[in-house]
């Protein structure tokens, strides 16, 4: 970051002499400061989980959701500025509705990720706007089966088997790599997701947090919904247990 302060970091429409766009890199910093979000694409579904850092005890539990629903079968989790997450989710819903309007069929996740990628990239082109300070994990079960994509602040998007963004992404990725994702069921993936979020939170020794989890799979009828309470509680309990046994 030796080039900071040289005047090339003031606008997203200006390259630095070595070909970088600093505003986009700063946007990535905003993502790195946020609580971790992970996504698991497994045999029969997709699971999203978020470590939502609670900055005040006065907040109502469940406030400021970071997992949102795009279409019946599509969900999204963000890491970064929460308000940017809502803008992108709103746009994603518009794109999904537009796709249904034009093609009279539910969109595949690939087309939604593609359109959102273009949307995010537009914000890296002009001096009048700032890039989105979020990385977005998109999950769905569409006609081609389970799908998982991540869109970064630059607008690039890639498909993944397992994805992690935010503060604890490095540790989360190592944990995800240990799993045989293509052999897990969605129900097993919920247990693993809760465990990983608790693990990376413990590692960072952060303040209070709330676990948020959603899934799309046979047990949710192919719809993106919050993980049912009994399974959620079981996953959270076994995640805490795993932490304790690891410390011993």
């Amino acid at each position: 970051m030796t080039s900071i302060g040289t005047g090339y970091d003031l606008s997203a429409s200006t390259y630095s002499p070595d070909g970088r766009i600093f505003q986009v890199e700063y946007a990535n910093k905003a993502v790195e400061n946020s609580g971790t979000a992970i996504g698991l694409k497994v045999k029969d579904g997709v699971v999203l989980a978020v470590e939502k850092l609670v900055h005040s005890k006065l907040l109502v539990p469940g406030a400021n959701r970071r997992i949102q629903t795009v279409d019946r079968h599509i969900g999204l989790a963000t890491a970064g500025l929460p308000a940017d997450g809502r803008t992108v989710a709103s746009r994603a819903r518009d794109e999904a509705a537009n796709h249904r309007d034009v093609y009279r069929s539910p969109p595949t996740l690939k087309t939604i990720a593609d359109r959102l990628g273009h949307f995010v990239q537009m914000y890296t082109l002009y001096s009048s706007v700032r890039p989105f300070g979020i990385s977005t994990i998109l999950g769905a079960v569409d006609k081609d089966g389970p799908a998982l994509y991540v869109i970064e602040p630059s607008g690039v998007f890639f498909g993944y088997h397992g994805a992690a963004v935010g503060k604890g992404r490095q540790l989360a990725k190592t944990e995800l790599e240990k799993l045989k994702l293509s052999e897990l069921t969605a129900r097993e993936a919920v247990m693993e997701a809760a465990r990983i979020i608790y693990l990376v939170h413990e590692d960072a020794k952060e303040k209070e947090f709330e676990l948020e989890m959603s899934w799309i799979g046979p047990e949710s009828n192919g719809q993106h919904v919050a993980v049912p309470k009994d399974l959620f509680d079981a996953a959270e309990a076994s995640a805490r247990e795993a932490l304790v046994s690891e410390l011993e």
Partner: peptide, 8 residues
């Protein structure tokens, strides 16, 4: 109905 579903 999709809008209502997404509002969650």
């Amino acid at each position: 109905m999709i809008d209502e579903f997404a509002a969650h």
